[in-house]
Write a protein that binds this DNA or RNA. Structure first.
Length: 646
DNA sequence: AACCAAAAGTTTTTT
DNA sequence: ACTTTTGGTT
């Protein structure tokens, strides 16, 4: 490496980081505590590999979100040069999609498959239950949402149906056989219609690597250096994929922190991190324990917090930073006084010159922030909200996407039924008849356009044919297609939703995104794999990064980020930890890690908010105690104050 | 067969 | 508060 750059790296990295960055070939495990410069280490290492002559496209960087990958490559480019943008990066799911698109045929799967999201999967399962299970069901039978949950857990935890039922749904054990039947039918249905759900992407990538040595070798020859971020949140399938990708070269670096594992509900297992050295026997272990983020009093609290975990691998973060502001627990009377306290504090911080974008309010669940959102809007404070409400899953967006989806995949039953049901006097039966005709014809979209049956020649159906015929035109851009669809769909929208003005704006936003794409396929893939998840002051928008917005976020979506001041909403026992998680130690530990992730986001000031006296209607309990995780912390670590007590 | 209204059951986090 | 299921009417 060029000496000047090497010197620069030496001054900008600490000893442990430097060691990791300059680690050569072979397996490397980096245990990186919160705020210890994990991202920095990854970007510097990527830049270093490129600088030393490794072709950027031979480096694979797997991260938790595509945004994280993009930011890392951006930073690496600034460090070195634009070559770093050529590094292959993304999430496990998007990487799987890239590979499967090319090799799907090897798995006897059509190349032009469609990726379905969770609600789609639920609807498909719903069809199966309705059509194949006509016998009246004895006792409580799981709803389609629960069925989708169960099947997804099986895939993510790599466990048989019995085990999942035993552990989490013992009351459904009598239906074991039926559940198995439904799952088989679901698998068949996906194959017939060329559909893959999120879990299929990972599973099929693993199958491909495992059963096709020639393809595996081609891939391991292509990706000579692999780096995986947030390794504590990978599941069994992902760990096996990593193992196969490492092939014979074993140039695999994984980075993670067992204390920040917060996705076990999705099958993630932080033991993956601990098992890594036994998977790769000559693993080098580097630990990053110096925290550069948080002021001393915050670090003192977070260290005490994570000490309470029942199962843990001890480590204590240290810092050379001073700081005088102790974390505070603020008791307020009602939910609204909690919101008012935060609004007042934010105004005061703004007066001190802290930008809104350097302040965050974090919460356990999206709806916990509703009252605060009202209050912020009233005060005219603009904010961005991450997590919670899923824009892509709202009915009008899914409607719009359905029209685009049948252009890519004319046998997509879900989308056909969805758009046919919007036509007057067409219900489930007629929709099915029309769809069956399309499948029988095997002529793609023409099967519908040229259907001359009585049903298909009704004036209302004819209007749909007309618009589909117009947009089925290779010379039209995706944006142009979208405009035609919107013109057709808007009257339907007005008839079906009384809040159509808001929804119309959403659709126009979607159209604006669509216009930035060259191909419909990649638009649809992106909308499923990495959907826009933010809302700007209540209305969805392409986030103007330049603007100075306050950040509201679920703890899960706040992963990896940091702010000057952090407020944690509802640090109330029963909310955080959630009442549902207080039954067993494993779940309780995860809630604790979640609280740990939330509090380690703060650099200078940390507030826990605790409104008293909330009635929880699900359990019938009155919640009034602060979070059990905070209860035993001494006053020197956590100051208790009364906020607004009305 | 489609449509509509009333009733019942659920309630986190996300690719 | 919200979605999904149900039963009854057109």
């Amino acid at each position: 490496m060029e000496q000047a750059l090497r010197d620069r790296f030496r001054t900008e990295l600490n000893a442990a980081q430097f060691e990791a960055v300059f680690h050569d070939d072979g397996p490397l495990l980096v245990i990186a505590g919160a705020g210890s410069g994990k991202t920095r280490t990854l970007t510097y290492r990527a830049a270093r590999l490129v600088e030393e002559g490794h072709p950027p496209e031979s480096i694979l960087l797997l991260t938790f979100t595509r945004k994280a990958a993009g930011e890392m490559l951006q930073r690496a480019s600034q460090l070195l040069d634009a070559r770093c943008h050529q590094i292959a990066g993304g999430t496990f799911h998007s990487f799987a999609n890239t590979i499967l698109k090319r090799y799907a045929a090897a798995l006897n799967f059509p190349n032009g498959y469609t990726i379905i999201d969770r609600p789609d999967a639920e609807s498909l399962i719903g069809y199966i239950v309705k059509e194949n299970m006509d016998a009246p069901k004895l006792g409580a039978f799981p709803r389609k949402k629960t069925l989708a949950d169960i099947y997804s857990k099986m895939a993510n935890k790599d466990a048989p149906l019995e085990d999942i039922l035993d552990m989490e749904y013992p009351h459904f054990l009598p239906h074991l056989d039926a559940l198995r039947e439904i799952q088989d039918a679901y698998t068949d249905m996906k194959k017939q219609q060329a559909l893959m759900d999120y879990d299929d992407l990972l599973n099929n990538l693993w199958l491909l690597l495992d059963q096709h040595p020639a393809i595996r070798e081609r891939l391991t020859a292509r990706y000579r250096h692999i780096m995986v971020d947030e390794y504590q949140d990978t599941n069994r399938v992902q760990a096996r994929i990593v193992q196969l990708l490492a092939g014979n070269h074993h140039n695999i670096m994984v980075v993670g922190d067992d204390s920040q594992s917060i996705y076990s509900f999705r099958g993630a297992d932080f033991r993956n991190i601990m098992d890594f050295p036994s998977l790769f026997p000559d693993t080098r272990l580097i630990t990053l324990e110096e925290n550069y983020r948080s002021a001393e009093p915050i670090l003192a609290l977070t260290n005490r917090l994570i000490d309470q975990a029942i199962e843990k691998y001890p480590k204590t973060l240290f810092s050379n930073r001073g700081g005088s502001n102790s974390p505070q627990l603020i008791h307020t009377g009602s939910e609204n006084s909690q919101s008012r306290f935060i609004v007042d504090k934010i105004m005061a911080l703004a007066d001190q010159g802290i930008p809104f974008s350097d302040i965050a309010v974090l919460f356990r669940a999206g709806f916990h922030a509703f009252d605060l959102e009202v209050e912020l809007t009233r005060e005219g404070i603009s904010y961005v909200k991450y997590g919670g409400f899923k824009f892509m899953e709202s009915a009008h967006i899914k409607d719009m996407l359905a029209y685009l989806r049948i252009l890519c995949n004319p046998y997509d039953r879900l989308s056909w039924v969805r758009i046919l049901l919007q036509i007057n006097k067409i219900g489930p039966k007629s929709a099915q008849t029309l769809y069956d005709h399309i499948c029988r014809q095997k002529q793609g979209l023409r099967g519908f356009l040229e259907d001359q049956s009585k049903l298909a020649t009704k004036p209302d159906v004819q209007r749909l044919k007309d618009v589909l015929a117009t947009i089925d035109d290779a010379t039209l851009s995706p944006g142009g297609q979208g405009e035609h669809i919107l013109a057709y769909y808007l009257p339907i929208l007005k008839q079906r939703f009384d809040d159509y003005p808001k929804r119309t704006r959403d659709l126009e936003q979607l159209l604006a995104i669509l216009e930035t794409y060259e191909s419909l396929e990649s638009f649809l893939e992106d909308m499923t794999l990495e959907p826009p998840t933010t809302t700007v002051s209540g209305a969805f928008g392409t986030v103007g990064d330049r603007e100075d917005h306050l950040v509201l976020s679920t703890v899960h979506s706040a992963k990896g980020l940091e702010w000057h001041t952090v407020f944690i909403l509802w640090a109330l026992d029963g909310r955080f930890p959630s009442l549902m998680a207080t039954e067993n130690d494993g779940q309780l530990d995860e809630e604790l890690r979640l609280m740990y992730v939330a509090s380690t986001r703060a650099r200078e000031q940390l507030y826990f908010m605790c409104p008293g006296q909330v009635y929880d209607r699900m359990s019938g309990m009155l919640l009034s105690q602060p979070s059990r995780f905070l209860a035993d912390l001494p006053e020197g670590i956590l100051e208790r104050h009364a906020g607004n007590l009305w």
